Deep mutational scan, measured.
Amino acid sequence: MDETGKELVLALYDYQEKSPREVTMKKGDILTLLNSTNKDWWKVEVKITVNGKTYERQGFVPAAYVKKL
């Protein structure tokens, strides 16, 4: 869990989004888990830094590609 009590997951593999509802992740990324009720796709939040500014983006990743921490 992070400092706000949200559950975290670890990306076990790289994943490139294939639709606007998904998010890209790299092996080793730590993501915030938002919803894991679907056994195949989990909703996560990723933080992306571009030119020194951090953005948060929500989307789905394959559940088999992440592990709860």
Rank of each mutant, 00 (worst) to 15 (best):
N51D: 15
L34K: 05
K47T: 14
K26E: 05
Y55M: 13
D2V: 10
V66I: 08
K53H: 15
K27Q: 08
T49V: 14
L10T: 06
K6T: 13
T32D: 06
V23Y: 02
L34S: 02
L31M: 14
Y15C: 02
T4F: 15
G5Q: 14
V61C: 04
N35Q: 10
Y65A: 12
T4N: 15
T54S: 13
K39S: 11
L33Q: 00
Q58A: 12
V61W: 00
K67A: 11
E22Q: 10
M25Y: 01
I48A: 07
N35L: 08
Y65K: 06
K43N: 06
E45F: 04
K43Y: 15
S19N: 13
R57A: 05
G59T: 01
Q16W: 12
W41Y: 07
T32S: 09
D14H: 05
Y55T: 14
M1I: 11
E17G: 15
T49P: 08
T49W: 11
V23E: 00
L10W: 06
E3S: 11
S19Q: 08
K27G: 05
L69C: 10
D40V: 13
D29T: 06
K26S: 08
G52R: 05
W41A: 02
E7K: 08
V66T: 04
V50L: 13
P62C: 03
E3V: 09
V50F: 10
T49S: 12
Q16T: 15
L12G: 01
T37Y: 08
Y65H: 06
K39W: 07
A64V: 08
K67R: 15
Q58I: 11
K6Y: 15
W42Q: 00
T54N: 10
E17C: 10
K68W: 06
S36L: 04
K6H: 14
N51F: 09
M25C: 05
E22G: 10
N51I: 06
L8M: 11
N35E: 15
K43P: 01
N51A: 13
K67I: 14
R21Y: 13
T4D: 13
A63H: 03
L10A: 04
E7Q: 14
A11Y: 02
K6N: 12
V9F: 04
L10E: 10
V9G: 10
G59D: 00
V66W: 01
A11L: 02
K43A: 08
V23N: 02
K18W: 04
S19D: 11
Y15H: 03
E3Y: 04
L31H: 02
A11N: 00
M1H: 15
K43L: 15
G52C: 09
N38F: 06
I48S: 07
K53S: 11
A63I: 03
L34P: 00
W42I: 04
T24A: 05
L8C: 10
N51G: 14
E22C: 06
P20V: 10
L69T: 06
N35K: 06
D14V: 01
R57Y: 05
T24E: 04
A11R: 02
Y55G: 11
G5Y: 11
E56L: 15
K47F: 11
E56M: 15
N35H: 06
P62R: 02
R21G: 15
N35Y: 05
Y13F: 13
E56I: 15
Q16S: 11
V9E: 00
M1K: 10
V23T: 04
T54W: 11
T4P: 13
L69Y: 08
L69W: 07
N35G: 06
R57F: 04
P62F: 02
L31P: 00
G28N: 06
L34G: 01
L10D: 01
Y13D: 08
A64K: 14
Q58V: 11
T54Q: 11
E7P: 09
L33R: 01
V44R: 00
Y55A: 11
K43Q: 13
V66S: 01
K68F: 08
K67W: 07
P62K: 03
K67L: 12
V61Q: 00
K53Q: 14
I30A: 02
Q58F: 06
Q16R: 09
K53W: 11
V50I: 14
K18G: 07
K39H: 12
K43E: 14
G52H: 08
E17S: 15
I48W: 10
N38M: 08
E7C: 12
W42V: 06
D40N: 13
V46I: 15
Y65D: 04
L12H: 02
L34N: 02
K39G: 09
K26H: 09
V44S: 00
D40G: 07
L8V: 08
K43C: 11
P20N: 10
V46W: 04
Y55I: 15
M25T: 03
V66L: 15
S36I: 05
P20F: 07
Q16M: 13
V61G: 00
S19V: 04
V46S: 12
I48H: 08
R21N: 14
L10C: 08
V66P: 00
D29S: 06
M25S: 01
G59P: 00
N38Q: 09
F60A: 02
L10I: 15
V50S: 10
L12T: 04
N35C: 09
S19M: 07
K53A: 13
G59C: 02
V23H: 02
E56F: 15
Q58W: 07
I48Y: 12
T4S: 15
L33G: 01
E3T: 12
L10R: 09
E56K: 15
W42G: 00
K18H: 08
K47N: 10
L69H: 05
V23A: 05
K67Y: 07
T49C: 11
T49L: 12
T32V: 15
I30M: 07
F60W: 15
G52P: 02
T24N: 05
Y65E: 02
R21S: 13
D40W: 15
R21L: 14
L33W: 01
G52I: 03
S36D: 15
G28M: 03
L34C: 06
S36M: 07
V46K: 15
T4I: 14
I30N: 02
D29L: 04
D2Q: 10
T24W: 03
L12A: 03
E22W: 03
W41M: 05
A63P: 04
Y65N: 06
M25G: 01
E56A: 14
T54R: 09
D40A: 10
D29G: 03
N38H: 11
L33H: 01
E45S: 15
D29P: 00
K53F: 14
P62V: 01
Y15V: 01
E7V: 15
Y13I: 08
E7I: 15
E3N: 11
G28Y: 04
R21I: 13
P20A: 12
G28P: 00
N35F: 05
V46P: 02
L31C: 07
E3W: 04
K43G: 05
E56V: 15
E17Y: 04
Y13T: 07
Q16L: 12
E45K: 10
N38G: 09
E17T: 07
Y13E: 10
K68Y: 07
K18I: 06
K27N: 04
T4C: 13
T37M: 10
P62E: 02
W42S: 03
K18R: 15
Q58S: 11
A64R: 14
E22R: 04
A64T: 11
L31T: 01
Q16F: 14
A11D: 01
T4Q: 14
E22T: 06
E45G: 13
F60R: 03
A11S: 05
K39Y: 06
L12S: 02
E56Y: 15
V50K: 10
